[in-house]
């Protein structure tokens, strides 16, 4: 066990955990931030996606010991009132079915739009290919990303 200082959603946090503990479990088990989901534990499903210094990463593969000095953003910190334009687009298109993978989808989508405000269909598919949705909401996810892109550019 060891102490680690983290910056999550703009707040400084200290946790006392095994250095190998993945960020995913630090968030869920120690910081009460359960929006980041466990789906596979091997970076294959994308349910645990967070922003690491602005990039979309799988938090199940990020040991807590590698995070000092980095800025982490989770779904809970994407916006203050759930009104980030990607979240708004998700509501407008009414994307979710079961909803479990959607936080990860939204974090991947928002990172994509931060770096590429007007992505093509192919760019969306490539950026989102690591996020599985077992319910099959892929068409709506794509529509929501396009709607968010429009509102961002406008």
């Amino acid at each position: 066990m060891a102490k680690f200082n983290l910056n999550i959603n703009g707040e400084d946090k200290t946790v006392d955990v095994d250095p190998n503990t993945p960020l995913l479990w630090v968030l869920r088990d120690h910081l009460n931030l359960v929006g980041t989901k466990y789906g596979c534990g091997i970076a294959q499903c994308g349910a645990c996606t967070v922003h690491f210094n602005g990039s979309a990463v799988r938090s199940c593969q990020l040991p807590v010991s590698s995070l000092e000095g980095s800025k982490i953003k989770t779904i809970e910190g994407l916006s203050e009132n759930g009104d980030h334009h990607v979240q708004q687009a998700w509501l407008e298109i009414d994307v979710p079915q079961c909803g479990y993978c959607q936080a990860g989808q939204i974090m991947s989508a928002s990172a994509l739009l931060d770096s590429n405000p007007n992505p093509s269909d192919e760019e969306i598919e490539n950026a989102m290919n690591g996020n599985i949705c077992r319910c099959g909401t892929y068409s709506r996810i794509k529509a929501a990303i396009k709607a968010a892109s429009k509102s961002q550019i406008a």
């Binding site: 359960v34 929006g35 989901k37 989770t74 779904i75 916006s79 979240q87 998700w90 509501l91 936080a103």
Partner: peptide, 19 residues
């Protein structure tokens, strides 16, 4: 969807979110 806002903001909804 009545739960959509909670889903897109990552609020606890699922069994696995129980602590």
């Amino acid at each position: 969807n009545v739960d959509a806002k909670k889903i897109v903001t990552g609020q606890p909804l699922f069994g696995l979110d129980t602590y």
